[in-house]
Design a protein around this nucleic acid. Structure first.
Length: 523
RNA sequence: GUCCCGUUCGUCUAGUCCGGCCUAGGACCCUAGAUUUUCAUUCUAGUAACAGGGGUUCAAAUCCCCUACGGGAUACCA
């Protein structure tokens, strides 16, 4: 056979959030499609009408886009209203493909691969209960309607019984499959029952609709969670009955929670993809991290770009065992990415969180200052939503925390230092405090102040100038500089953590520095 | 119950297919140290694993068998 163009798909059902397991499945399909130079299709499996919602659809579309997973064919992103975007094999919503399923079902019915079943859900429940009670090794449909005669069928119809359509499974046949991840596996069909293809109302079920669509959409490879492994066997038989070749299957292990159990919304620390977005996780970092769950980029590298991932990705390299989700490593990776950004990128990407912390309208007028604020915290945050907290001390006089109180207590003389240092600052040409107009004070200065950077020229006191003045003053007062910084930082910022001391003074500006120093000088 | 899959540092993994280069490599976490005005960053060092038991072999993390443990499936969900 001539190798067809590789076509892969991610086929979520819009019945809930896109959690990271689903995102990873999408990613592996996407990466394999890109690696093979193929096409990536997004198909929406919305045949569970009771649970499918437009909201979930939107969440899935947004989640994938956020992670940088784009699709060549499928729903249009902006709509979220079940309209189809590009692609010649649509529609890409299963509920818009009902005629295709009907056609195929008729064909299978006529050929005897499927049959009408009149059993009620109540009867099925009873059958299952009995099988369990008998400790039967087989659980599933008992085949009551498997060989109904036309007369019997007519009788049922006359009684007004509705029917669904079941697929007739071979009674005992060993199906051999070659899974791209699991390798050769044999399954005996005696384990499997005659499963329902089409509901009484005509709406198809997963295993059936999936095959019809994979045929119609010319899907060549299917990467999905291992919970679908046995479905793959059932689907294999449908392809065969329809006279089509089965795609290559790759069943990936599930992502587990920290306890080793299945990932679910209830697990603390496990969020839907959009929650990560809303908390300011860099999408590249999340992408990078989840790609590593069950797959290794190389023996000695964990951080890589999307392109590098695609270039290195081999589906056979995905492991067979489930991986536990480790928040610590995710956070580390987020920090890695944030530190790599240019300051301006970091500022741009932090805007929405800064905006939340600042008074209304303050954002626009203080870009230079905010740039410096962000620069000081770029290597101190792991997710962008930490910014509002980080900048609080610049916006309002802070309460002192425990370490700050300790730092002040440790130096009984420090209250006189506060007053003296405030006096000194008042003589210096310092920029004013936020939200005042700092003029071009922030334009010349690039924080954080680095040892080897050339000193900027500015009409305002730069951090370097502040340092010279402070050191000279401290020496004159016979205060050890090392002793001086701790308590003063505490008075200024309310804590013992943060940017370099003179960057702190510079960012805070004159009034706030003086005010806070004098306040703590008397307390 | 039955069937399928798995098991390398606490975690994610490299190595397993084609046995020797593995006194098992990297990363996160943790610890210690260096740098520093604090924190963070950065750098250095350290702790720590082939699930257990049998085989095959000159040689096994790698091949075979058994056990244990974990996961998945067994729906008119996907």
């Amino acid at each position: 056979m001539i190798h067809p163009t590789p076509r892969l798909r991610f086929a979520p059902s819009p019945t809930g959030p896109l959690h990271l397991g689903g995102a990873r499945t999408a990613m592996y399909n996407w990466a394999l499609a890109r690696a093979l130079g193929g096409t990536f299709v997004l198909r929406i499996e919305d045949t569970d009408r009771a649970r499918s919602t437009d909201e979930s659809l939107q969440v899935i579309l947004e989640g994938l886009s956020w992670l940088g997973i784009d699709w060549d064919e499928g729903p249009s992103f902006d709509a979220g209203d079940r309209s189809n975007g590009g692609g010649d094999f649509g529609p890409y919503f299963q509920m818009q493909r009902l005629d295709r399923y009907e056609q195929a079902a008729k064909k299978l019915l006529a050929a005897g691969h499927a049959y009408r079943c009149y059993c009620t859900p109540e009867r099925m429940e009873a059958v299952r209960a009995e099988q369990k009670a008998n400790k039967s090794s087989f659980l599933g449909y008992d085949g009551r309607c498997r060989d109904l005669t036309d007369v019997q069928r007519a009788e049922f119809e006359e009684q007004g019984l509705t029917s669904n359509v079941r697929f007739r499974m071979p009674e005992e046949r060993v199906i051999k499959v070659n899974d791209l991840i699991r390798g050769d596996v044999e399954v005996n069909t005696k384990q499997l029952d005659d499963w329902v293809m089409v509901r009484a109302g005509g709406v198809p079920l997963y295993n059936f609709a999936c095959v019809i669509d994979d045929v119609d959409m010319k899907i060549t490879h299917v990467v999905r969670g291992e919970e679908h492994f046995l479905n793959g066997i059932k689907q294999n038989l449908v392809f065969e009955a329809l006279g089509h070749e089965c795609p290559q299957y790759a069943h990936i292990p599930l992502i587990l929670n920290q306890k080793g159990g299945k990932l679910s919304k209830r697990d603390p620390g496990v969020k839907s993809t959009l929650e990560y977005r809303d908390l300011g996780y860099p999408p590249e970092a999340v992408f990078n991290y989840i790609s590593l769950l069950g797959w290794g980029f190389s023996a000695d590298r964990d951080v890589f770009t999307r392109d590098e991932m695609v270039a290195a990705f081999k589906i056979g390299g995905v492991g067979k065992s489930g991986a536990k989700f480790d928040v610590d490593k995710l956070h580390w990776m987020c920090g890695e990415y944030i530190r790599k950004w240019s300051t301006d990128d970091c500022l741009a990407r932090s805007q929405q969180w800064l905006e939340a912390a600042l008074p209304e309208g303050a954002l626009a007028g203080h870009q230079g200052w905010l740039r410096n604020v962000v620069a000081c915290y770029q290597e101190r945050v792991t997710v962008l939503s930490e910014f509002p907290d980080k900048v609080q001390w610049l916006l309002a006089d802070p309460e002192l925390d425990e370490p700050a109180l300790k730092a002040i207590k440790k130096r009984p003389d420090c209250k006189t230092w506060f007053a003296g240092f405030a006096d000194l600052l008042e003589t210096l040409p310092m920029a004013v405090s936020f939200p005042g107009d700092r003029g071009d004070a922030d334009d010349a200065v690039r924080l954080p102040t680095l040892e080897d950077a050339p000193e900027p020229e500015s009409s305002f006191a730069t951090p370097a100038a502040l340092e010279r003045a402070a050191r000279a003053w401290a020496e004159q007062q016979e205060i050890k500089f090392g002793h001086f910084v701790g308590p003063v930082r505490a008075a200024l910022t309310g804590t013992n953590k943060g940017p370099g001391f003179f960057d702190v003074v510079f960012l805070l500006g004159k009034e706030a520095c003086v005010r806070r120093l004098r306040k703590h000088a008397v307390q």
